[in-house]
């Protein structure tokens, strides 16, 4: 309904979810993508240089 309006999801979600199974572990692809993104964002937050940090050396 809303898709015809031009603001539908960029990815077609109108189907059953995809799942990955490894022995007793089962996880949806969507959840796995979010988890990978969170770990990647965490690593980036730790190691990516913060803008203007050099100039703040003298702060406080």
């Amino acid at each position: 309904m809303a898709q015809g309006w031009g603001l539908g999801a960029l990815v077609n979600l109108d189907h059953y979810g995809h799942y990955i199974q490894w022995h007793v572990i089962q996880i949806s692809v969507g959840n796995l993508i979010v988890m990978v993104l969170m770990v990647a964002t965490f690593l980036a937050a730790l190691f990516a240089p913060f803008p203007g940090r050099r100039n703040r050396k003298g702060a406080k």
């Binding site: 937050a45 730790l46 913060f50 203007g52 940090r53 703040r56 050396k57 003298g58 702060a59 406080k60």
Partner: peptide, 14 residues
């Protein structure tokens, strides 16, 4: 008005 230099971290942005 100011914070220690180590507060300039993405962790606090989150």
């Amino acid at each position: 008005d100011t914070q220690p230099a180590y507060v300039a971290s993405w962790i606090y942005v989150f």
